[in-house]
Nucleic acid binder design. Structure first.
Length: 695
DNA sequence: GCTGGGTCAATCGT
DNA sequence: CACGATTGACCCAG
């Protein structure tokens, strides 16, 4: 494999290219001060506890809040205060959200009155297909009932699902916000999967999965921060990103599903008044300015009537009136910046950019001649840098702007199709210790299970719902990814198409083999060595990278066990804290679905050392509230199946967000060496749910 | 590959 | 309680 050592070639599929990075020092592990049982008590049997995600932003960390001063113009002290001020003002500790397993359902039998059953049944043979068509039936039935305005039971009763604590429905916190967002997206992904697999059969399409998912949650009262408020929304942090307007509705950031201005009426003594709460800048009216702390916002109202071709002025009513009143009272208005998604041109990404005040308003003539209200909003000083950081990141990506601490443009030296920059604006370290950049596994061992047919015979690309595809068959009939290449559900094992399959390399069932898609950066953290962060916003379920390195056996780990040699070891046999990521079928009325187990089944442990050979994954730090998870992926090469470890985004990750995953805990006595505890490192993740140790 | 028009639709206020 | 105003998300034609 190593004979072609050509760094200049740019074929990202060629895993054999190797690049050398200058040797430098590496960070020694910090040893724990005292011994502690990490998972003391374990979990209630039967269900995994839900992660807390209390402090998902690793930048800035509470202990080092001024890390990454992205904007030199901001005085050094202000961001610190801002970060503290932005801390959700939760008065009392709220009981954690309970997760419990869905019991056998007693939901309404979706069959009966619907005559569409024939659309789904014939072509499918076997148990799984039948259940799958039931799922579709259930969804359709649910949607039909929703249309007929049938009231769904609220939390409690016989329908069991993972709900929102009733006390958090009005006033939420970080945990409830993340819980709602993750549940929303899990359902949305599942609906996409159902829709895409159904297209082959010409059946009724489930369009607008975002709206359907929102319906499903709304029907169950699965929302948070429903009390309308001006100013800070508890649990929502400046810089949070959203991929659908509905997401902002569900967590109380902006209640209008379409309208750009959210407002409410208030009673001021005997007088009724109206206040603007938030605005969503769609980024299409030319509302961007040179200064990222200023937003020119256009009022609402049709300016040009297409029917009678009549041009009208905007009226000082509704949202426009609310903005006017808020301007007079100097109220704070939440601002959400909408930006067109460069990856998916028809989609938009939204970022919460904190509180602004209306400084000025005037009327302009629009292109068609009608009067348009304009509002100048200025960002309140002292808030954590968010939208401006995103803009800066875009400039850095384009190389159109110099930056502090810049060391290397591409750590992978051309091996990745997208450069991986190296920066350190923290200390004098000039780079990580020597290693060889490589994007897959060296010396992999064939997977222990004999597969009857390792490859599929699809002609161009495997199509969701095509049950003749042997790769889809091995995924139990489900296509693991949506058309956007987003993972739908965690599974014990994902079967991808491989080099032996007849389908093209562009087949959507090869997500983990297509290389880096996001702009990544290796950066110096404060106190945690090097870390990995993204310059692009990443949506939940997105493939990030494989854990590349040399496959080693346990004896080798023991042998290397002293010192910091095991710092770069990934080991599937560690204890990993379980968490729920997949959709909850009871929320979908998808009750007959066989929900994927989220327990991985790996017959023999896979141990990978990225000490000498590896990719960006080796720089990802540990967190007890991570935003990335790993997933075993299997595909065939040279008549044998090989297991790979693929990393996916656990939730949306904002630009400049650090990527972290749970390193797990080494089973005592198994790790080799005299004491397993020796290897454990003090955790500095700063999460509220921090276990204190990892490794 | 990109744009622009068409379609469907959720939410809150009136 | 129904309807209107708003315009996002996505699709398809050009």
């Amino acid at each position: 494999m190593e004979e072609h050592n050509n760094n200049t070639a740019s074929d990202s599929f060629d895993k054999s290219k190797i690049v050398e990075v200058k040797p430098l020092r590496s960070l020694a592990p910090v040893l724990p001060k005292h011994v502690q049982s990490v998972f003391s008590g374990g979990y209630p049997s039967g269900f995994p506890p839900f992660y807390s995600f209390v402090k998902p932003h690793q930048i800035p960390l509470p202990k080092e809040p001024e890390e990454t001063p992205l904007d030199a113009k901001v005085p050094e002290k202000t961001p610190v205060k801002a970060a503290a001020a932005q801390e959700t003002p939760v008065a009392a500790k709220v009981t954690p959200i309970r997760a419990y397993k869905s019991s056998v359902n007693e939901e309404v039998d979706p069959r009966g009155d619907d005559g569409d059953n024939d659309l789904f049944s014939e072509e499918f043979v076997g148990d799984k297909r039948k259940r799958s068509s039931d799922n579709i039936e259930n969804c359709k039935e649910f949607l039909k009932r929703k249309k007929n305005k049938t009231r769904e039971p609220v939390v409690g009763g016989t329908s069991s699902y993972v709900g929102v604590n009733p006390t958090l429905k009005d006033d939420g916190d970080r945990e409830s916000v993340n819980h709602v967002l993750m549940t929303f997206d899990s359902i949305r992904r599942r609906l996409c999967q159902l829709e895409e697999s159904k297209e082959l059969n010409n059946a009724l399409a489930i369009k607008r999965a975002d709206l359907r998912a929102s319906n499903a949650l709304t029907a169950k009262g699965f929302k948070t921060n429903m009390r309308r408020r001006a100013g800070v929304v508890p649990g929502i942090e400046i810089g949070d990103v959203f991929f659908f307007r509905m997401e902002m509705c569900l967590v109380g950031l902006h209640a209008q599903s379409m309208g750009g201005i959210d407002y409410m009426s208030i009673k001021d003594g005997s007088k009724e008044d109206t206040v603007a709460l938030s605005v969503v800048s769609s980024g299409v009216y030319g509302d961007d300015t040179e200064d990222n702390n200023v937003l020119i916002y256009s009022g609402q109202g049709e300016n040009f009537n297409k029917k009678d071709k009549h041009v009208t002025d905007q009226k000082l009513q509704r949202g426009n009136l609310a903005l006017d009143r808020s301007a007079q009272r100097h109220d704070e208005v939440r601002v959400i910046r909408g930006v067109r998604d460069p990856v998916n041109r028809s989609a938009k990404i939204y970022m919460y950019d904190g509180l602004y005040k209306i400084q000025d308003s005037w009327i302009e003539r629009g292109k068609s001649g009608g009067g348009i209200f304009k509002y100048k909003l200025a960002r309140l000083p002292g808030q954590k840098i968010a939208y401006a950081a995103w803009k800066l990141a875009q400039k850095w990506k384009a190389g159109s702007c110099s930056r502090n601490g810049f060391i290397l443009a591409d750590l992978s030296n051309g091996v990745e199709s997208i450069p991986v920059s190296l920066v350190n604006d923290v200390d004098d370290e000039k780079g990580p210790a020597f290693f060889t950049y490589f994007t897959s596994l060296k010396n992999p061992k064939p997977f222990g299970v004999v597969q009857p047919s390792l490859a599929c015979n699809c002609k161009t690309a495997c199509v969701p719902g095509d049950l003749n595809c042997s790769c889809i068959q091995r995924n139990e009939g489900d296509f693991p990814y949506t058309a956007n290449c987003v993972l739908v559900s965690r599974k014990p094992l994902i079967h991808e198409c491989g080099p032996m399959c007849r389908c093209f390399p562009t087949c959507k069932n090869r997500v983990s083999q297509t290389g880096l898609k996001q702009h990544m950066e290796v950066f110096r953290t404060k106190g945690r060595g090097w870390g990995l962060r993204t310059l692009d916003p990443i949506r939940a379920g997105t493939f990030i990278c494989e854990y590349a390195g040399e496959v080693i056996d346990r004896a080798k780990v023991c042998q290397n066990g002293e010192g910091d040699d095991d710092e770069y070891v990934f080991d599937t046999s560690r204890i990993y804290e379980p968490f729920k990521w997949n959709y909850e079928p009871s929320l979908l009325e998808d009750v007959s679905s066989n929900v994927c187990s989220e327990d991985y089944t790996i017959p023999s442990p896979l141990i990978i050392s990225a000490k000498n050979v590896g990719n960006i994954a080796r720089f990802m730090n540990h967190s007890c509230s991570p935003n990335v998870f790993w997933q075993p992926v299997l595909y065939a090469e040279n008549n044998q199946s090989f297991l790979h470890i693929a990393f996916f985004a656990l939730r949306h990750i904002p630009p400049m967000g650090e990527l972290t995953y749970d390193y797990g805990i080494t089973i005592p006595g198994r790790a080799g060496g005299s004491s397993a505890l020796r290897r454990r490192k003090k955790c500095l993740c700063g999460s509220a749910k921090c276990r204190g140790f990892f490794g």
